[in-house]
């Protein structure tokens, strides 16, 4: 918000001062390469998707069928399940990254021994390929030979089929997603926490506030911008998720862990291009309907402060 306004101000004064320079020095054709790419490979496909989602489509010819694809999408349980799962996946991963990310960041900004080491360790999974992580967890979570259930067995617990139980698969993948993406959330929170002046905490201590009270009335309100960023980033990623699900369960067992992203791919593979594109439009609507109010709300809160 503030960046935008100062930028406008800078732009205006600059323009008034050096009208001639501004015209010649900053040619508008610098936009051209990016504009062409964006138009051809992003804007046109996005607009075209609204039309193609209303057709039975084979890439070579199409037949207009109205809203039939959408009706099918919301009527067939195996497609509709993907819609529900997308919401669960998006909100759960986002919520867990906020809670665990903040808790870890608080821990890692305290005078903890080895905190620099821990920061690098937590961040590393962010850089590993999602497919690699998926395959690795398939081995670790193997119901019979996997390490996780092996460890549980020594504690006398019979571990579940993490990725093979239809009621559990989606939640296991959510856990893997949080494991992989926690590093970013944590680092964003660390950046936010470091910016809080320590005087506030000292004043609170002098006033006899408990650590929890200080956390609740100093830390939480002041890391709100970081929370906003974490929520937005992880929701955008979570709602679009595909790679990890495809690498671990492929949407299975059955279609219990399908999300819109995997439904789009399955329908594309099966040759139902119109239906696949309808799924894409549904995803577009889901993301827009969720993201726009959230980002407006978070921006408003910042202004109020």
């Amino acid at each position: 918000m503030t960046a935008a306004t100062t930028e406008v101000r800078a732009g205006r004064s600059g323009k008034a001062r050096t009208l001639g320079v501004s015209r010649h020095a900053y040619p508008l054709w610098f936009y051209l390469p990016a504009a062409v790419l964006f138009l051809v490979f992003f804007a046109i496909p996005t607009f075209a998707s609204f039309y193609f989602s209303l057709t039975r489509w084979t890439l070579f010819d199409q037949e207009f069928i109205g809203f039939e694809n959408y009706v099918q999408f919301f009527r067939e349980p195996q497609l509709y399940q993907g819609f529900i799962n997308t919401l669960i996946y998006g909100f759960l991963t986002s919520g867990m990254k906020v809670v665990i990310g903040l808790a870890l960041a608080v821990l890692l900004t305290s005078a903890l021994v080895g905190r620099h080491f821990l920061r690098s360790v937590i961040f590393f999974p962010v850089l590993v390929s999602t497919i690699g992580v998926g395959i690795m967890f398939k081995a670790l979570l193997d119901p019979f030979d996997g390490i996780v259930n092996g460890a549980l067995e020594t504690l006398g617990i019979t571990g579940p089929g993490w990725l093979t139980d239809p009621d559990l698969a989606l939640y296991s993948i959510i856990g893997i997603d949080v494991w992989k993406g926690l590093g970013i959330a944590c680092l964003i929170y660390i950046a936010g926490l470091v910016a809080i002046p320590t005087e506030y905490y000292e004043a609170a201590r002098v006033d006899g506030a408990s650590k929890w009270a200080a956390f609740k009335s100093i830390t939480l309100p002041l890391v709100k911008p970081a929370t906003g960023t974490v929520i937005i980033l992880s929701l955008i990623g979570g709602l679009r998720s595909f790679d990890l699900i495809w690498a671990t369960t492929g949407g299975g067992p059955g279609f219990s862990s399908d999300v819109i992203g995997s439904v789009i791919y399955k329908q594309y593979q099966a040759g139902f291009y119109g239906l696949s594109t309808a799924g894409n439009v549904v995803l577009f609507v889901v993301v827009t309907v969720i993201m726009v109010p959230i980002s407006l709300m978070l921006n408003k809160r910042e202004v109020e402060q």
């Binding site: 964006f38 496909p45 075209a48 890439l59 679009r240 789009i264 894409n280 577009f284 993301v287 993201m291």
Partner: peptide, 18 residues
Amino acid sequence: GLIIPPAVVPTVWVLQTL
């Protein structure tokens, strides 16, 4: 560009046309 998920099959269509 940051928020909207790319429309996959229409992108395939554009690529094929080109």
